[in-house]
Amino acid sequence: MIITHPVLGPRDAQEFTYLGDASLIHRPDPEADDATGAFHEYLYQRENIAGEHRELWFHEQGDRSWLVVTRNTLTHEVLDVEFANDVARREGRSQ
């Protein structure tokens, strides 16, 4: 597979390390009332989508950026690649 890095351009997926669903960005509030339940959902439960899947890849043998890659899990077509950093900020990870 090829992942088109937002800055470095097309790179072989072998340069990257895969983590999983991009929802892992949204670490729950540890102070919330049902923090244990929320963390259980966050860490263990997966949509595991057959279709467009937003997922985290780490450019380990590159610039060490985490990317959010939107990829179709049925066809492997890559639809979008963004810096996870930007996504996290945009999606409200303020701190």
Partner: peptide, 19 residues
């Protein structure tokens, strides 16, 4: 060493991007 570094970058870039 490699896994911890990757994990720390995950925390920095994905969990707490404004630190």
């Amino acid at each position: 060493a490699v896994g911890v570094y990757r994990h720390l970058e995950f925390c920095r870039q994905c969990l707490w991007p404004n630190m």
